[in-house]
């Protein structure tokens, strides 16, 4: 897949992240489960990418594979390559990968409470990694911890650093987790459902924070979510995943205003929004996602798709087009929507 060139980002010849044909397969007693099946993406410095999909679409597994948390092993097979700043994440030794974590790439998970050690003070969570990676002294690392808490908008950072995770609210905890991820100045931040466990008003605060930090630190961000709402208007590009594959990958506004894959369009249409009058029946997608142990032949969305033909059930469509293009981006569909708008239901 071509390198996305955008006017606003003067991308270096080598992108920050280049994933080519990544496939993650879990060997289960019931057979091989292809959780991620041939995904290619690239991300330039400072760019933000949203990965959207329903549960079981493989979006979290993709995030973890990109980071190198899931690697080739007895129960998993990872193929394809993930180049992060020129290093192949999956060709490195475990020790080599650990040097990347924190300084090159960091991750924020869904549930802030389980990301924090309940018997360790907030300050220790932050100072630990900076001492390890940046070799700071005890006193320096303590100052750095307070700076970090300040950076993520925690009031009274010095006092908070001395508290335990249970003394903080959910939103505050997620801010601490973000501060931990930022501690060593990563060039790529992967946030996996960072706001799903939070209240709506807090959710907006955390997303605003991630956005401003990304811009301020010129840090590339991958935002993984099942919620199209958290991705819309906050990312440069969106990749829509369905049953382990990318079905559409284009600029965010393009995907929301002019979805070209029938799944993207159906997903967007099924969210209730305020313009609908009460008691409107939503255009729901009938059926359910396929079982990844035994996915359907051809296009995986075909059994639920309103425009599917015989071709769709026999031949798997390739992702064609360029994600960075103004002309609609990449879509994996034999009958992409757009030009023939009257084909819509």
């Amino acid at each position: 897949m071509g390198l996305p060139e955008r006017e606003t980002v003067t991308s270096a010849p080598v992108p920050l992240l280049q994933a080519t044909d990544v496939a993650t397969v879990f060997r289960t007693p019931r057979g091989a489960m292809r959780a991620v099946d041939g995904v290619s993406l690239s991300l330039a410095r400072g760019e933000t990418l949203g990965i959207v999909g329903e549960s079981g679409s493989g979006k979290s597994v993709l995030g973890r594979t990109l980071m190198g948390l899931i690697t080739d092993g007895p129960e998993t097979s990872v193929t394809g390559s993930v180049l992060l700043g020129g290093n192949d994440v999956h060709a490195l030794t475990p020790a080599g990968r650990r040097t990347l974590w924190g300084t090159e790439v960091a991750m924020v998970f869904q549930d802030p409470m389980t990301s924090l050690n309940p018997v360790k003070k907030i300050g220790r969570h932050l100072s630990e990694s900076v001492r390890l990676h940046l070799g700071l002294s005890r006193a320096e690392s303590r100052d750095r911890a307070v700076d970090l808490l300040c950076q993520v908008g925690i009031p009274e950072p010095a006092r908070r650093a001395g508290q335990y995770p249970h003394e903080l609210s959910g939103g505050m905890r997620q801010r601490v987790v973000i501060a931990m991820a930022l501690a060593c100045g990563p060039r790529l931040l992967i946030a996996d459902e960072p706001t799903t466990a939070l209240d709506v008003t807090v959710q907006k605060q955390i997303l605003d924070l991630l956005q401003s930090l990304g811009e301020e630190l010129r840090m590339a961000t991958i935002l993984i979510s099942h919620d199209l709402g958290t991705i819309a208007g906050r990312t440069d590009r969106v990749a829509v995943m369905y049953a382990g594959r990318l079905v559409e990958h284009a600029r965010t506004a393009e995907v929301f205003d002019n979805p070209r894959h029938p799944y993207s369009r159906a997903l967007i249409a099924s969210i209730p929004h305020l313009d609908l009058s009460p008691h409107t029946l939503l255009p729901a997608i009938e059926g359910r996602p396929p079982n990844l142990l035994n996915p359907p032949a051809g296009c995986r969305f075909a059994p639920r798709c309103v425009v599917a033909t015989d071709l769709c059930t026999t031949q798997s469509p390739a992702l064609t087009g360029r994600a960075g293009d103004d002309t609609g981006g990449a879509v994996a569909c034999h009958h992409p929507l757009g030009a023939a708008k009257e084909a819509t239901v």
Binding site: T201, K204, L228, T230, G233, I271, H273, L274, D275
Partner: peptide, 15 residues
């Protein structure tokens, strides 16, 4: 009003 303002763009419709 705060709840409404916190709503992500995709759910606001075009108001």
């Amino acid at each position: 009003r705060l709840l409404l303002a916190s709503l992500p763009e995709a759910q606001r419709g075009r108001s």
